[in-house]
């Protein structure tokens, strides 16, 4: 069986199970384009951009909240004196 035909039902099922997954949307858009299904391609590009952008925003929030490694260590040993202090 052609690899594209094999991939198609799997990717379509993935998109149904996880509709906000930008990666799946991207792969599906690429596959539709290779198969010449341009309308389907276009309909996948929009959610790809949407969920990729949301992912970017969430990533920024996550990064902004990251605890530095030394702070993490202090958390885990609250009775221990911070390094370099008396």
């Amino acid at each position: 069986m052609d690899q594209q035909e094999k991939a198609l039902p799997l990717l379509e099922a993935s998109a149904q199970l996880e509709p906000t997954n930008a990666s799946v949307r991207y792969r599906l858009a690429k596959l539709y384009r290779k198969m010449g299904r341009m309308d389907d391609t276009k309909s996948e590009v929009e959610p790809y951009h949407k969920y990729k952008d949301r992912k970017g925003k969430l990533r920024a929030v996550y990064k902004g909240l990251l605890i530095q490694p030394d702070e993490t260590r202090a958390d885990e040993n609250p009775e221990e004196e911070p390094h370099g202090k008396n």
């Binding site: 996880e18 906000t20 997954n21 930008a22 990666s23 799946v24 969920y51 949301r54 992912k55 969430l58 990533r59 929030v61 996550y62 909240l65 990251l66 605890i67």
Partner: peptide
């Protein structure tokens, strides 16, 4: 952060 991680997972981010 945990909430963010849950949200990120929801958007299929775990690997990326």
């Amino acid at each position: 952060i945990l909430r963010s991680v849950v949200a990120l997972s929801f958007f299929g981010l775990s690997g990326m």
